[in-house]
Design a protein around this nucleic acid. Structure first.
Ligand code: SF4
Ligand code: SF4
Lengths: 133, 133
DNA sequence: TTTAAATACGACTATATTAGTCCAGTTTTA
DNA sequence: TAAAACTGGACTAATATAGTCGTATTTAAA
């Protein structure tokens, strides 16, 4: 029910490492070597973080990634939404999604579940990536 | 990252229904009909809830389930643990489990993740099943 | 005493999600 | 021009969730 995906864990490890490093830019390889994270997978994640404006990158030899903003300005909520895509705790609360729960009409717990979702979101919003250091 | 499983949703719907019904006992069929929940699946869930002492049951004709304790004494945390089995938000925090994350030795985020887990658990412990009404 | 309605249990299949791999680019510096 | 790095998409593998099936047992009532 509540579980971090590896993508999120790898993101946190990588962001933390990049934030703490002295070098101007950090390569995916350096991080994947240091933490035994599968290189191709980590590369994908960093690319995504770049696309989402959490990282910026230089290509070519001596290229790599650096932070676009400090870690205390990135909430866990934001990170999750950007890495995994915005999700809801139950089917019927997805906004963008077309799939509909076949119980929906008769469902008796929608409202309280909705409130629960908000409480969880609030917790995730107040947790900053910088808190994972 | 945070998602209710159908088993939990069905549990909540069923518990709520059983708590609100006047009849002495409620059958799995009655609930599955009313809410379009797959009967066999719901039956499994109710059996599990019985085994975990949240429900008690009578077999045979006119049999069914009733609550073993009031809903305000069952936390969401307890329900999840009993239905899905005790889980942790990351591999390395599982107590019973033997599987080990291959990053574990070098992992830099174990401690803060651990704290996060405790915060989430606290939220789930304070939410009672009776709050889902 | 037979039948039907119900729980009980375990194995099985199907589907969805997550994790990880592969390959063929492009960019940049030495 | 070669090597080091990012870029991007398709692919496969592994795992977890959701749902099904078959068979047995219990029990009240006809
Ligand atoms: S309608 Fe009810 S059962 Fe279906 S996804 Fe929403 S909360 Fe869950
Ligand atoms: S060791 Fe680190 S990466 Fe591995 S499961 Fe624990 S927190 Fe996640």
């Amino acid at each position: 029910m509540v579980k971090f995906s590896k993508k999120i864990e790898y993101s946190l490890i990588a962001l933390r490492y990049i934030a703490g490093a002295k070098d101007e830019v950090i390569t995916a390889k350096e991080i994947s070597n240091k933490y035994n994270i599968p290189h191709e997978l980590l590369a994908k994640i960093l690319q995504k973080l770049k696309k989402e404006n959490i990282l910026s990158s230089n290509q070519g030899v001596n290229g790599g990634y650096k932070l676009s903003k400090p870690l205390n300005e990135i909430s866990l909520s934001e990170l999750i939404d950007k890495i995994e895509g915005k999700t809801a705790i139950v089917e019927c609360l997805h906004t963008d999604n077309v799939s509909e729960c076949f119980i929906s009409d008769s469902c008796s717990i929608k409202d309280p579940i909705n409130k629960m979702q908000i409480e969880l979101e609030n917790l995730l919003k107040t947790k900053m990536v910088s808190d994972f250091i």
